[in-house]
């Protein structure tokens, strides 16, 4: 076609957004008729050269004003409620969503699948599976946008943001960076490629492979000496990390927080900002020592330790090489979350 008039609807939620938009378009047409109609009609009927009855009869200004205040107000509240409820669902991914890591940098998207496969400026996803993108930026703010899915989320440095969707139609769709990020902003584009589940499996095993993030994270965990304190025969008393992810962590000063991705990230980079109750703030910062990639891997490893795992322990950290994800074998007595 010479020109498209409506974007593809290729994910859950796209239709909901489009329905709201159609409602808004109809409402707009209604108000344009309500405003432009009288302007044109009065402009013709009461033009100065034309005789017309211009005697104004008495009218109740208050009633008129209240009517045209309340009617738009009610319509506005309706649209607010509908659009906000769809948005609320957009912001809350299901627990079983498949998590894909996205790193934005000037001017490309680096993507890693849970199985380990990496790609650049392309996002392959299986149809019908809830997908959660966990995203961060290595430099400036970017924004991850797939118009056919009707979703967008800014991607920030120093912070994790996420978005989720269920692809519903196989095909290739545009992927854009929509937060201005410098000279190459207009080239920071790519494709979202929705495959059938079988094709996705085939794609995962084709081409260059790399280690899955949890496993890579387990290696980093030892390599950077984390295990020295958080597992094994500890020299320094540090909280166990088994079952930490998703749990409620008691902090110094009678506060608590939920151990989500952002909390884990902050605890690695800024360990003294949120100290677990009962522990000394002795952990060194890893700011500047770990790449975003390595952080993703470490966090993936920590996630693989729980939930479900019982108590953290003082046993040496072990993981078996034959397993897909690293596994900590817990035992022992005391321990608090973290």
């Amino acid at each position: 076609m010479l020109f498209p008039i409506w974007p593809d609807e290729a994910a859950s939620g796209a239709q909901e957004v489009d329905q709201i938009v159609i409602g808004l378009v109809l409402m707009s047409l209604f108000f344009i008729i309500v405003v432009a109609g009288p302007i044109l009609y009065f402009g013709f009927k009461y033009r100065r050269s034309r005789p017309a009855n211009r005697v104004i009869s008495h009218h109740n200004t208050w009633a008129i004003e209240i009517t045209w205040t309340l009617v738009p107000l009610i319509i506005a509240v309706c649209f607010f409620v509908v659009a906000a409820s769809v948005y609320f669902r957009q912001r809350h991914p299901p627990a079983d969503a498949m998590e894909i890591h996205v790193i934005g940098k000037q001017w490309m998207w680096k993507i890693q699948h849970p199985q380990g496969k990496r790609e650049i400026n392309e996002l392959h996803v299986p149809v019908g599976v809830p997908i959660k993108l966990l995203m961060t930026s290595q430099d400036v703010i970017h924004s991850f946008y797939i118009p056919a899915f009707r979703i967008k989320q800014d991607v920030l440095p120093g912070r994790y943001t996420s978005m989720w969707f269920v692809p519903q139609k196989t095909g290739e769709y545009h992927l854009f960076c929509t937060q201005y990020c410098g000279e190459g902003h207009a080239r920071m584009t790519g494709k979202a490629i929705v495959l059938s589940k079988a094709d996705y499996q085939k794609w995962l095993t084709s081409g260059e492979q790399s280690e899955n993030p949890a496993k890579a994270g387990a290696e980093l965990f030892r390599q950077y000496g984390c295990s020295g304190c958080h597992a094994g025969s500890r020299v320094v008393r540090a909280p166990s990390l088994v079952g930490l992810y998703g749990s409620v962590v008691p902090l110094e000063g009678n506060k608590t927080t939920i151990a989500d991705d952002q909390y884990l990230r902050d605890s690695i980079l800024l360990p003294n900002s949120q100290v677990v109750a009962g522990y000394e703030p002795v952990m060194p910062s890893y700011q500047g020592k770990l790449s975003e990639d390595a952080l993703f891997s470490l966090i993936a490893y920590l996630k693989s330790l729980g939930p479900g795992a019982e108590e953290g322990g003082t046993q040496p950290l072990k993981y078996s090489n034959d397993m897909g994800a690293a596994q900590l074998l817990p035992s022992g007595s005391k321990g608090s979350a973290k």
Partner: peptide, 28 residues
């Protein structure tokens, strides 16, 4: 009169942008 027409159109499309789920798609 042109102002009224264009301001009305601009204001109504502002309602699209204020609608959260729609804004996610059309912002930026």
């Amino acid at each position: 009169l042109g102002f009224i027409g264009l301001f009305t159109a601009g204001g109504l499309t502002g309602l699209f942008l204020a609608a959260l789920a729609v804004d996610v798609h059309v912002t930026h």
